[in-house]
């Protein structure tokens, strides 16, 4: 019980006008550093590069920027090579994300079981994810090396033939996809595993009592629970794979020929080899648009179930 009349008035110094004003503006002051960082490191470069994409401009060369509006976009979209790069990137993304999805999922199901040494296996599996992509690229380049590579040695010993992985277009794409898959399947696994761990035990038991088979239990109990995380894994991996540069650059430099020349490689060439800064900005924006469209359709797909459920309810 608080009896305010009994307590003596508190001794508070009358506060200065400044202090009161400071108090009122404190939230603004506290937010300011974040705001400055956000604008300075994120918003400003974004808008600046958007602006650049409308100019013919090279950061390396002395000529003045020339406003050409959609000229960069036009020449990019009219360039059959860029469309080929889109195709190559799409093939890589589909292959890599698909494989990572399957493997990550499988690994998660395996690691969801209890067995001896599970924690050790789990931490070992997470190791590739912690590595620098450049290191992974270099590492796989050696694995695929026809003279010194481990893979060639194994296929030679076991099957009596070697695949020249990085010398033919299709195997090279497979090789790059495998490297990325090696690195990122554990990521998908981690997300799926956390989903699996979140499946309520009672639901699984309920399904047992209901006589649901393994597949039906999986479809009706497990899948709905892990679906949002699966979608998230696919979304994140798609965005990342779309941008992948380091591993490819180190392993193949986009070769053989242009078989693994993805958009990021093309962007790197435009920006840092040809120093066509304006055009590179335009390509970066085209990629951004594609990523946004992709991720939005993913999100829509992911939200569909929820909203459908709500519609039914109302």
């Amino acid at each position: 019980m608080r009896d305010s009349e009994d307590t003596p008035p508190r001794l508070v110094k009358p506060r200065s006008a400044f202090a009161r004003m400071f108090d009122r503006r404190l939230p603004a002051w506290l937010l300011a550093p974040t705001g400055v960082l956000l604008v300075g490191l994120f918003l400003f470069p974004l808008l600046w590069s958007l602006g650049l994409s409308f100019y013919r401009y090279s950061v390396l060369r002395a000529r003045d920027p020339k406003l050409i509006w959609g000229g960069n976009y036009g020449s990019l979209l009219g360039d059959p090579d860029i469309w080929t790069r889109f195709g190559t990137t799409g093939a890589f993304v589909l292959g890599a994300v698909g494989l990572q999805f399957v493997l990550g999922f499988g690994l998660a199901l395996l690691l969801h079981q209890e067995f001896r040494g599970r924690k050790v296996v789990l931490s070992l599996l997470l190791a590739p994810m912690m590595m620098a992509p450049v290191a992974v690229g270099a590492f796989f380049k050696f694995i695929y090396d026809p003279t010194f590579g481990v893979l060639g040695f194994f296929t030679q010993t076991l099957f009596g033939f070697e695949v020249s992985w990085l010398e033919r277009p299709f195997p090279a794409m497979v090789a790059v996809i495998l490297a990325d898959t090696w690195m990122w399947s554990p990521f998908v696994m981690l997300l799926v595993l956390s989903g699996l761990l979140a499946v309520p035990k009672h639901l699984m038991e309920m399904a047992q009592i209901d006589r649901a088979g393994r597949w039906l239990t999986f479809r009706n109990v497990v899948l709905p629970q892990i679906k949002p995380l699966l979608m998230l894994a696919v979304l994140l991996r798609t965005m990342e794979a779309f941008k992948l540069f380091d591993t490819i650059w180190v392993m193949t430099q986009g070769g053989p020929g242009t078989a693994t020349e993805t958009l990021s490689v093309a962007l790197y060439r435009l920006g840092f080899q040809y120093f066509k800064t304006g055009k590179a900005s335009a390509l970066a924006y085209l990629m951004l648009i594609v990523v946004i469209v992709l991720s939005n359709s993913y999100l829509r797909l992911a939200m569909r179930d929820v909203s459908a459920a709500h519609e039914e309810a109302s």
Partner: peptide, 22 residues
């Protein structure tokens, strides 16, 4: 015997309803 072969029905305190089904 596994639950399926016991012919029992159970109400869990935590409800255990399939969340995605009506």
């Amino acid at each position: 015997l596994p639950p399926a072969e016991r012919d029992v029905a159970m109400v869990f305190e935590t409800y255990a309803l399939y969340p995605h089904l009506t």
